[in-house]
Amino acid sequence: MKIDDIAKIASVSKSAVSLALNGKPGVSQETRERILRIAEENGYTLKPFSKGQNNNKSKIFRFVACTHTGIITEQYHSQSFFMELINNIDQSMKSKGYSLIISSINVNSLEQEIVNLEKQQRSSGIILLGTNLTEEQIKTVADTQPNLIVLDTCYETLDINFILMNNVFGAYQAGEYLIKLGHKEIGYVESSYSMYNFDMRKKGFQKAILENNLTIKPEHTFQMSPTDISVHEEFKESILELKGNLPTAIFCESDYMAISVIKSLNELNINVPVDLSVIGFDNIVESQIVSPELTTIHVKKDKIAALAVEKLIREIDNKEDDKMKIFIDTELIERKSCIKKENA
C-alpha cells in the first residue's frame, strides 16, 4: 500500500497523510487517528531506522506538543509564540547537523502516542512543550526517551532537564516599570486557565506591588482567555461597572490578553495609553501591529531554543548525565501603550 491509497481510503490529501504518518501538525487529531488506523489495518508502516542508525546516530530530534483544551490547541503551531520558538529550535538543530520532526499528541493519550511515535521513527532526543503537564506525564515521556528537554514549565524535584523563561523576573520587571511611571492604581488581567507560567508571573508582579506598599483592588482584577485575540464582552462590562474607579494601568499575563484589552477598551472609547496604560508579556509579532504598539516583556525564545539543542547534543555525544534547570531572564520592551502618570 502507498500513501496515495491511504489518501483515497481516508478521503484526504496525500499531504495530510504524510503529516499524520510523520507526526507533524496540520491535521486534526481525529483525522490523524483515522489515517494511522487505515495504515495499520492495511499493513503500512513507516520505515524504521536500521540498527546501524541507533538513537545516538539518527540525527533526528522530535519536538512534541501535548494539546489541551483552551491552552495548547490543535492550532498551537499557528500562534506567534510557538511558531517563533519552533523556528528557532529548527534553525539551531540545522546548524548542528540535526533535523526536526514536529509531533502533536493528545494529552489524554500521551503515553500510548509517545510510544507509537518513537516506534514509528526513533528520535535521538525529545524537546517537549510541557505547558500544564503534570509530573507523571513528563516522567512518562522521559521513560520512553531519556534524552529529554522540557520547555515552558518546571518541576524542581524531577531529575529531568527544564529550560524556560524567568516568569517571576519578567512580571517583576513589568510591575517595577509601571510603578516608576507613577502608577499606583494598577489592574491585573489573569488567564482563565491556570498554568505554571501564569502562576509565576503573578508571583513576580505581586512581589513588585508589595515591595512598593501598593495593593491590587479586587475589582481591578480581570480574567480572560490566554490564547485568542478578541473583544471580550465580560471585560467590557467589568470596566463599565467601575465607572470613575478605573485603574491607571493594567498588567496582562500574556500579549494575547493585552491586545484583547486594548481592542475592548477601544470599543468603550477609553484611550490607551492616555486613559489607561497597558503592558503585556511574551513580545509576540502582533504586539508591534496593534495600535498603540504594545509595551511588553520579551521572552528570549532564540536563547531557550539554542540552549535546549546544545544540552541535548551534549547528552547524546558526550554522554552528559547532569540534569539542569535553566531560567532565561527576560527583557522589558518599551513601546507606546504605557505613559507616565500625570501628577506622579
Rank of each mutant, 00 (worst) to 15 (best):
E237Y: 01
I60A: 06
T296C: 08
R122P: 01
T69R: 12
K300N: 12
I71G: 05
E310V: 00
N147S: 10
I216K: 03
S50H: 07
T221L: 07
E118C: 02
I9M: 13
N213V: 05
E267V: 01
S264D: 03
H220T: 09
E118Y: 06
T215S: 13
R34C: 06
L21W: 10
N88I: 00
S13D: 02
K300M: 03
I229V: 14
N213K: 14
Y155Q: 06
K24D: 06
Q137E: 14
D329G: 13
L181I: 04
E241A: 15
Y196N: 03
S92Q: 09
G70D: 14
Q288S: 15
T153Y: 00
N116C: 02
I284C: 12
P48L: 01
H68C: 03
I339R: 11
D90P: 00
D329Q: 05
Q206A: 09
I304T: 11
S92K: 05
F169R: 08
T153V: 05
S80Y: 04
A16N: 10
P48Q: 11
N213G: 05
S15A: 11
V141I: 11
E320D: 10
D302I: 00
I126Q: 14
P292A: 07
Q112W: 00
I126A: 02
L307F: 04
E234V: 02
